[in-house]
Amino acid sequence: MPSIKVACLGDSITQGTDSYNWLADLQQQFNPTFEFYNCGINGELAYNNLLRIQQVIDIEPDYVVILVGTNDVLATLSKGNTNLYLEIANLPRVPDMAWYIENLDQMITTLRQETNARIALSSLPVLGEDLEDNANVIVNRYNEKIQRLVKKYNLHYLPLNEEITEYLKVHPVENPAIYRPFGWWLKANIHFRTRVLKQDWDEYVGVHGLQVTTDTIHLNSVSGKMMADLVAAFIKAV
């Protein structure tokens, strides 16, 4: 009997090398009936996902999960970030929210035209763990636009941000961490602790006092398992 195919589009939060690998959880839970295709690539924006949408179409997926946009937000938070993403993501223009929604809309439209897949669209996770910080104010604006696309195309919605937000409200800390740029030193530290010392994400998070992120950007096991549970519920709802 052929496997049921689930293609998951996105960035590093989906790829799972710098973030908790929630796809691995799903593959273990649904193996061997379902086959999960990891179509996430570190550092990508919605524009880059759109450029390689044919790869997803060629899979002939039964389900598509889209979690992309964190880098789109990051690219707008400072001039330095903008210049960085223009270079590393090979962007044809300065990114903004309108362009993000345009690219995401085209991704959805193309998938609806070229596949028979059921499509789920996720809200973007928090940036930093201070819900009042400007980075999360901006994330919420993007998520409002995402919800409009969900309604426009009658898609399944994965409320990842909402679940993370509720968790942080239930587990408040005195000085929640704000978003900080993801520098090379922090990435090297994560790789050393998780790949050399074989620490799990929770051990790493404990070093920095973070609750739902590893570095104020990427998911740890708490938030990563939330994503896995949301996708599992989406699949089981059919």
Score class of each variant (00 low, 15 high):
T213G: 09
E44N: 14
D18M: 15
G206L: 14
D105M: 01
S78C: 04
N48A: 05
T70M: 09
T109G: 07
V64T: 10
N81A: 15
L51C: 08
L155F: 01
N154A: 15
H156N: 11
D18W: 05
G16F: 00
N175S: 09
S12C: 10
Y153P: 02
G224H: 00
F36R: 02
L121G: 12
Q29N: 09
Q106I: 04
F34N: 07
L149V: 10
I217L: 15
L197K: 07
I235S: 10
E60M: 13
T82Q: 07
I190Q: 10
L77C: 05
V137G: 07
M226V: 14
P32D: 11
D72P: 02
D25P: 08
E114Q: 06
A177N: 12
T33K: 15
P159T: 14
T70V: 15
N90E: 12
A120D: 10
L124D: 08
D11L: 03
N175T: 11
K198Q: 04
V238R: 07
A89K: 00
A120P: 00
P95V: 07
Y20W: 14
K152T: 15
K152Y: 09
G43N: 13
V150K: 06
M227N: 08
E174V: 11
L230F: 11
G10D: 14
N140I: 09
T216R: 02
I57S: 14
Q113E: 06
P2K: 15
T76L: 08
S122H: 05
Q28W: 09
